[in-house]
Every structure is written in structure tokens, then in C-alpha cells.
């Protein structure tokens, strides 16, 4: 069983909301990346989204754009990202990990080659912002390696499109909470609650919500109608910022702890 399925089934039986932090591979410090991933797990991450740096991240806001530029300046490409996952897996065999990014690096590497390497490294899923629903080669290669191809939905997705996405969903569905780029605006929980709830009825897989969740209050508002909450830009910005502990793992724990606590308190209440 894929680690993603395992984790969501655990969350369901414990009636917990999943917490999914996103970090860009190689940022803020390539050498501290694997300890950072472990720190995310210590701080209560249920699943990790690891961003694959790309030169033209057209769906990302300034925070993740800069993170991509910094990582690329430090020569972090797909090879280095997969190496980080391999190293992470030596000490963590249970936390699911999803690679997130754009199609071109995967295409250039070769879809089959990538799928094999990703599976061997211990990746559990792939989320591509610009991959079309009908990319048969990619779907087949991912399926053959038991890797989930995570699909995104947006507030603008039509009923037909939502139906198609739900039908082909694998692992979980990622609902983009705002019409905008990553980290741009605060998600308006009230505006999307009905759409996400309807989607959960329709889909055979859990639904995570992200793209505008910045803190514990934001996460809590989403938690009332989603299976998991994704936090990306706000975390990436905090890790990069100058305040607080100099150790990046400690910073990750400081950022995630109140969010984890808020989600758990909700469950207790």
C-alpha cells in the first residue's frame, strides 16, 4: 500500500485533519534539507510536499519564485531532489512524500526514467501544476510504479471537469483555495466550503486544501471541511526570514507547532 493511502486512512480513523507542509528542495540551505524534512515530521507533518525547483514557476507567487531561484542558483535540480528523498528515507520509512513542480524537467528526463528513479528513491506521489489530465504516458508510468499522480482542482473548475478529475483521482485531490498564485491571498474558507464538501462527496479520495493558508487560524477554518491542509509560501517565507532560531529545523518546528496544536485541539473539541 502506498504511504499516502496508509496515512490518510490513519488520519480518518483518528478523526484528525492532515497537515501538509510544502518546502522547496534546496531552500533555504541544501545541506540542511534532509534535517529540515525530519523536523517537519517532528513538528507534526502528516505528508510532505517537496518542491522541485523550476526556472519558470508560472503558478507560483513571489515567495516560492524566489525560493526556486535560490535553489537553482545552488544547482539543485531533479537529481539532487531525488538524492534528498533517498537520504530522508534512510531514517523515515513511513511519512509520505509528494514531489511538486512543473512538467518540463520531468519530460526532459524522460517520464519512464523519472518514474523509476522516483519510486526507487522513496517518492509516493507527484503533483504537476501544468500537466494535462489526458497525459497517458505519465499516468501509465506513475501507475506502473504505484506512485500517485495528484490532481489539482480550482474554484473555477467546471462541474464536468470536477467529475473527470474526481473519477481519475489518485492518492488525494488538491483543492486550490484561491484564484491566484501560491501565497498570494488568504483563502476565504466560507467561499469554498460548499465546493470542497461537494467534491468530498464525489471523490473516492481525500481532499487537501492549499494555496492561501498562512497560519493556525487559516488552517483551522479550512479544517472544518477538508481532509488535510497544505501550508507552503508562509512556511517558505518563515524559513528564509531573519527572526527566531538560526537552526532551520528549529524554525520549522516553531512555525508548525501552533498549527498542529490548533488542528489537534479542534479534534479534541
Amino acid at each position: 500500500m502506498n504511504r499516502i493511502d496508509q496515512r490518510f486512512s490513519q488520519l480518518k480513523s483518528a478523526a484528525r485533519t492532515g497537515l501538509i507542509p510544502f518546502v522547496t528542495a534546496g531552500d533555504p540551505d541544501p545541506a540542511a534539507m534532509v534535517p529540515l524534512l525530519h523536523a517537519l515530521v517532528d513538528a507534526g507533518a502528516d505528508l510532505i510536499e517537496l518542491g522541485m525547483p523550476f526556472s519558470d514557476p508560472m503558478a507560483d507567487g513571489p515567495v516560492i519564485q524566489r525560493a526556486n531561484e535560490r535553489a537553482l542558483a545552488r544547482k539543485i535540480g531533479l537529481t539532487q531532489v531525488l538524492e534528498m528523498v533517498r537520504t530522508f528515507r534512510r531514517d523515515d520509512t513511513h511519512t509520505p512524500l509528494v514531489l511538486m513542480g512543473y512538467l518540463n524537467p520531468i519530460e526532459i528526463r524522460g517520464v519512464e526514467h523519472f518514474a523509476e528513479e522516483a519510486a526507487n528513491a522513496g517518492v509516493d506521489g507527484l503533483l504537476l501544476v501544468d500537466s494535462p489530465l489526458d497525459d497517458a504516458a505519465l499516468c501509465a508510468q506513475m501507475q506502473a510504479r504505484h506512485l500517485h499522480l495528484i490532481r489539482l482542482l480550482a474554484p473555477t473548475s467546471s462541474a464536468t471537469r470536477t467529475h473527470d478529475l474526481a473519477a481519475r483521482a489518485s492518492g488525494f485531490l488538491y483543492f486550490v483555495s484561491i484564484t491566484g498564485v501560491t501565497g498570494a491571498a488568504r483563502a476565504d474558507a466560507a467561499a469554498i466550503a460548499a465546493q470542497v464538501q461537494a467534491l468530498r462527496q464525489q471523490a473516492r479520495v481525500p481532499v487537501a486544501v492549499g494555496f492561501g493558508v498562512k497560519d493556525a487560524a487559516g488552517a483551522l477554518a479550512i479544517a472544518s471541511f477538508a481532509d488535510a491542509v497544505v501550508i507552503g509560501s508562509a512556511l517558505v517565507e518563515y524559513l528564509q526570514g531573519s527572526g527566531g532560531d538560526t537552526d532551520v529545523g528549529a524554525r520549522a518546528r516553531a512555525f508548525l507547532a501552533p498549527i498542529r496544536a490548533a488542528l489537534d485541539a479542534r479534534k479534541a473539541a
Binding site: M58, G77, L78, N104, I108
Partner: peptide
Amino acid sequence: GRPGVLHGNRTYVLCDDDGQIT
């Protein structure tokens, strides 16, 4: 260049072996 994906379409692109647009 070589076939790849950029700006919403599949086409010939100038990129390095890691798929980064040059």
C-alpha cells in the same frame, strides 16, 4: 532546442539537461 513544455504548450524549447529553461 528540443521538444519540451513551456508557457502552456508543448513545443521546441531551449533548456538544459535538467529541464531548466535557459
